[in-house]
Design a protein around this nucleic acid. Structure first.
Length: 348
DNA sequence: AAGACGGGGCA
DNA sequence: TGCCCAGTCTT
């Protein structure tokens, strides 16, 4: 039996029941695929259900505010996915009369949809013969076929894409695509793959050559930047100082607090810090340390300190990025995870 | 071609 | 810790 047949056979026995597998609605599939980009099924599932409930169709999505979308997205990360979805929902309403496209070439033009997602939506919704190549597929193919080209080099990506497309030729696209991804996720896992009970073990290059742990090959990891964020929490009556994060940095468009970033860890009596604090909040401001935390992201580690401030004055004309908003309003805004956690813990 | 972009789970 | 996750966009 062929590699593909074995994978499909395995799939029918072992597949999970996942809600987006019950539909061919391209809008619903789009929702699931964007949410699942770089995201585990277990992490994305509750968000998928929440989004579908709030936005049952693409028109409902298109009518949402960016703030509402980002609030629903809060905690999931890679927030540009949410912003791009809103843009694309509007685009589909305006240019496709609200009918979400199913053709690979049409999908590829939409913001937030790349090769993987276009292949996924087109194959799942209309059975178009486009092979998905995600992290799971890279791993399965690299191991089984013994491909030593790096999965993140242009050359490697081309090679994997071509092989994947050859393999899907005589298959049912929707089922085969689901099958190979599911096989990678549950069986041919990154760590501790289940080789001893693998249906394609006899033909597996990596297994036969003891290279399971080495494949797939991935080039260089990026250096992780260290940053120090000093946040100032100012509450006066029922209002709080809020700041919206700007483009060009992490968490853009989300709301946090007035922030002084430093080049290293600072204490409450640091002269340089105090100078900036006085400039922002006036000479009479009083500081109290509330909490310190380490926030680890893929590309940077952020050491976060929260200070409470009292007796402060803010020149809102000079610092236009800072606003004073009602506490109830503030809580409804979208926040980075670490800010959302802080609010839940410290602000009633 | 390389970096940026979140957050969580696992060994 | 380091690596990976149903990747895409920007520089």
């Amino acid at each position: 039996m062929s590699f593909q047949s074995e994978i499909v056979k395995w799939y029918f026995v072992n597949k999970r029941d996942l809600p987006w597998r019950e539909t061919t609605d391209p809008y619903v599939i789009w929702l699931s695929e964007i949410i699942l980009q770089q995201t585990r099924v277990e992490q994305g599932l509750p968000y998928f259900l929440k989004f579908l409930e709030n936005f049952p169709d693409v028109k409902a999505f298109a009518n949402a505010s960016e703030e509402r979308v980002l609030k629903l997205w809060q905690g999931l990360g890679y927030y540009s996915r949410g912003r791009n979805m809103l843009y694309t929902a509007k685009y589909v309403v305006d240019h496709f009369e609200g009918n979400f496209p199913t053709a690979y070439q049409d999908l590829l033009k939409l913001k937030g949809i790349g090769g993987y997602t276009a292949a996924a939506i087109s194959s799942f919704s209309s059975n178009e013969k486009q092979a998905v190549v995600d992290g799971n597929v890279y791993r399965v193919l690299a191991r089984y076929f013994g491909i030593e080209e790096a999965i993140n080099s242009p050359k490697g990506q081309k090679q994997f894409a071509q092989l994947a497309q050859e393999l899907i030729q005589d298959q049912e696209p929707a089922i085969y695509n689901q099958a190979i991804m599911e096989f990678g996720a549950l069986h041919c896992k990154p760590k501790s793959p289940l080789c001893n009970q693998c249906p394609v073990q006899p033909g597996c290059y990596a297994y036969q050559h003891q290279k399971v742990e080495q494949l797939p090959l991935k080039l260089k990891k990026v250096k992780i930047r260290k940053r120090w964020f000093n946040y100032f929490v100012g509450i006066n009556d029922d209002e709080i100082l809020a700041k919206q994060r700007q483009p060009g940095d992490v968490w853009q468009q989300l709301y946090d607090f007035p922030l002084i970033e430093s080049e290293q860890e600072v204490t409450i009596d640091d002269v340089a810090l105090l100078a900036k604090v006085h400039e922002l909040f006036g000479k009479n401001v009083e500081l109290t340390v509330l909490e310190s935390k380490k926030h680890v992201l893929t590309h940077q580690t952020i050491y976060v300190q929260f200070f409470a401030i009292d007796n402060y004055i803010v020149n809102f004309n000079q610092h236009t990025e800072i606003k004073s908003v009602k506490l109830t309003t503030f809580k409804q805004l979208p926040h980075p995870k670490i800010i959302g956690d802080f609010i839940e813990k410290h602000i009633d």
